[in-house]
Amino acid sequence: MRPIRATVAVFSLTALAFGAHAKPLDQNDRKVCGWGSQIAAEAQQAKLSGVTLYATRKKLQVRRFAKPWMRMTAFGITEQTYNSRSRLPTAAIKKTYYEQCIQHAIAKR
């Protein structure tokens, strides 16, 4: 059994070493995650308030976005939020989205 434990220990230390050398996230990644979490929070608030997905999408349609990719991404986030059975408060959705987005951005690096 010792060789297996040693292998696991070496693997764990190697993973820690590589994790320590990961590049920190840049400001743009944090902004994008913050923006996405705000969209998710707004969608959750609308869902919990009884606003239909159709009405929420219409609001997004007339909204101005800084980048061309933001509109379709906002639609996707909104749709996923509405399709979720979650009844979590808006603040919890915002926090969860942001944390998972940051984890994803770190994993991409």
Score class of each variant (00 low, 15 high):
Lys67Thr: 13
Ala46Ser: 11
Lys58Ile: 13
Arg85Gln: 10
Ala17Phe: 14
Gln44Trp: 01
Lys95Phe: 07
Arg87Met: 12
Val10Phe: 11
Gly36Ile: 06
Leu16Pro: 00
Lys23Asp: 09
Lys94Asn: 06
Gln80Asn: 14
Gln103Phe: 04
Ala46Arg: 08
Gln100Ala: 05
Arg5Phe: 10
Thr81Lys: 02
Pro3Cys: 03
Met1Lys: 06
Thr56Leu: 06
Met72Gln: 12
Gln100Leu: 13
Val32Thr: 12
Leu53Phe: 03
Arg2Ala: 13
Trp35Ala: 00
Leu60Gln: 06
Gln103Gly: 04
Arg57His: 04
His21Gly: 10
Glu99Thr: 12
Thr96Arg: 01
Asp26Lys: 05
Thr52Cys: 06
Thr81Ala: 11
Lys108Leu: 14
Arg30Gln: 13
Leu16Gly: 13
Ala43Asn: 02
Ala107Leu: 11
Val51Lys: 07
Val8Ser: 07
Ala41Thr: 05
Gly19Tyr: 02
Ile106Gly: 02
Ile39Asn: 01
Ala9Ser: 12
Ala105Glu: 15
Glu79Lys: 05
Ala74Gln: 02
Arg57Cys: 03
Gln103Leu: 14
Ser49Pro: 00
Gly76Ala: 09
Ser86Met: 02
Gln38Pro: 00
Pro68Asp: 13
Lys47Ala: 02
Thr14Ile: 15
Ile39His: 00
Leu16Tyr: 04
Val51Cys: 03
Arg57Phe: 07
His104Tyr: 11
Gln100Thr: 13
Val10Trp: 06
Ile102Phe: 01
Arg30Ser: 09
Glu42Ile: 08
Lys23Val: 12
Pro24Lys: 12
Glu99Arg: 06
Gln61Leu: 10
Lys47Gln: 11
Ala20Gln: 07
Ala22His: 06
Arg5Trp: 05
Ala43Arg: 01
Lys67Asn: 13
Ile4Met: 07
Arg64Gln: 12
Lys95Cys: 06
Ile102Lys: 07
Pro68Lys: 05
Ile93Leu: 06
Val32Pro: 01
Arg109Gln: 14
Tyr98Leu: 11
Lys67Leu: 15
